[in-house]
């Protein structure tokens, strides 16, 4: 990843500048034809269910043209890039995103308590915490607190997990006097 200062100095090629509007134009066109073909046709004399989404898509197309015009006026100027960006730790970012995606099926499969303990521990480790007692205590105490609030106080039926994980979750609830 180039440094922000280096990027602010060089003028990007026009295709890079126009990538955003081109993407939204393509998205709009595909979306329009999909809406036209997939939504039930309007009853006689009425606008029908497809009218509003099509209007929204036409709005996206027009806004993309407007954005392209705005960027066209800025070609050669630094503003076309949208200003300097913050330097990001790409590896950490990708791993955190992956963790956020992985925890979704994990919550359903292993249940909320186990998934949350593992998620908090892993997330803290990715975020730079290395002390084992911080990782374990934060994740266990935090999860217990959340379970008490949401299961015991608010009666929210959080996922208990599948197979034997459900028994483990129920055992945890019993140990915590939640049920």
């Amino acid at each position: 990843m180039s440094s922000p200062s280096a990027r602010a100095g060089a003028h990007p090629p026009w295709i890079k500048i126009m990538a955003g509007p081109i993407f939204f134009l393509a998205f709009g066109l595909i979306g329009y034809f999909y809406a036209d073909g997939s939504i039930d046709p309007a009853p006689p004399g009425q606008l029908g269910a497809g009218f509003w989404p099509k209007m929204c898509i036409i709005g996206i197309l027009m806004a993309a043209v407007l954005k392209a015009a705005e960027l066209f006026r800025c070609i050669g100027k630094a503003e076309a890039e949208g200003g300097a960006c913050k330097e990001m730790d790409t590896r950490k970012l990708v791993l955190m995103m992956l963790l956020i995606v992985v925890v979704v099926p994990a919550i359903s499969f292993v249940g909320f308590p186990i998934a949350t303990v593992l998620f908090i521990g892993s997330f803290l480790w990715l975020a730079g915490a290395r002390k084992l007692w911080v990782l374990s205590l934060t994740s266990i105490i935090g999860t217990t607190f959340l379970i008490y609030i949401f299961v015991k106080v608010v009666y929210l039926p959080l996922p208990k997990g599948d197979f034997f994980f459900e028994d483990i979750t129920l055992a945890i609830y019993r140990a915590l006097f939640i049920m």
């Binding site: 509007p21 939204f24 979306g31 999909y34 809406a35 997939s38 939504i39 039930d40 009853p43 009425q46 029908g48 269910a49 497809g50 509003w52 989404p53 929204c56 898509i57 709005g59 996206i60 027009m62 806004a63 993309a64 407007l66 954005k67 392209a68 015009a69 705005e70 960027l71």
Partner: peptide, 28 residues
């Protein structure tokens, strides 16, 4: 203005996903 309007219409389009209130038709 262009970016704002793109996002606004995109949000409105996301709001149309599901069964439509008036005609009861499935969309996206």
């Amino acid at each position: 203005m262009g970016s704002s309007l793109i996002c606004l219409f995109l949000g409105m389009l996301l709001g149309t996903i599901g069964i439509d209130d008036v005609y009861g038709a499935a969309r996206f």
